[in-house]
């Protein structure tokens, strides 16, 4: 029960953050794909950076056990295809699953339409699952992390991702200031 309460609290905070960033607005999200508005990239990069540094240093300082984190398994081909379908849906509707909830909560009809499509898609995949199960489980790589893929130590990987993310964010800020 406690876990559910915590999850609820985190969900409310996440929804508020998305709405404050303006991510409930489909045209704004779609503009990211035309490289005219970098809000999505900025929100994603800063969220990843905060979560990664928090998870690393929290684990290092003994606040929690990082080894207990669940890392989802990688199935390369099915996830590549899934990513393409996801990207297509994202640019067509201007919303991703999380932001469609936010859009619906703030009263946008686009959010309702996207969520309806989302559930219909999930249902379809569920019904077709026996037919696609072999593909669903193909090319398994276990819980593949950047650390395992490159063979670099965890800390070095964190530093590398930080430098890349901060550089991109600084570049975006410079571009926006120049406009």
């Amino acid at each position: 029960m406690n876990n559910l309460l915590i999850a609820g609290g985190i969900g409310v905070a996440f929804g508020c953050a998305l709405e404050c960033a303006g991510l409930g607005d489909p045209p704004k999200l779609a503009r990211q794909f035309y490289l005219r508005d970098f809000t999505v990239l900025k929100v994603m990069l800063s969220a990843m950076l905060t979560a990664m540094l928090g998870a690393f240093w929290g684990g290092r300082l003994g606040m929690f056990d990082s080894a207990a984190f669940y890392v989802p398994d990688t199935y390369l081909l099915p996830q590549l295809l899934g990513g393409m379908v996801f990207g297509l849906g994202f640019v067509l509707s201007g919303l991703c699953p999380g932001t469609s909830c936010v859009a619906l909560a703030s009263g946008r009809i686009e959010g309702a339409a996207t969520m309806l499509g989302l559930f219909a898609g999930v249902l379809l995949v569920g019904l077709a699952f026996p037919a696609i199960e072999a593909f669903y489980r193909s090319t398994p790589y276990g819980s593949l992390t950047l650390e395992r893929l490159t063979g670099l130590p965890y800390g070095a990987m964190v530093a590398l991702v930080t430098v890349v993310a901060v550089s991109v964010l600084a570049w975006i800020a410079k571009c926006e200031a120049g406009r």
């Binding site: 950076l49 905060t50 540094l53 690393f56 240093w57 684990g59 290092r60 003994g62 056990d65 990082s66 080894a67 207990a68 130590p153 965890y154 800390g155 070095a156 964190v158 530093a159 991702v161 930080t162 430098v163 993310a165 901060v166």
Partner: peptide
Amino acid sequence: ALVLGLGAPFAGSLFRTQ
């Protein structure tokens, strides 16, 4: 963020359980 990120390689092993 840069300070925390660049400090990470010198922070030793992440996993307490290892």
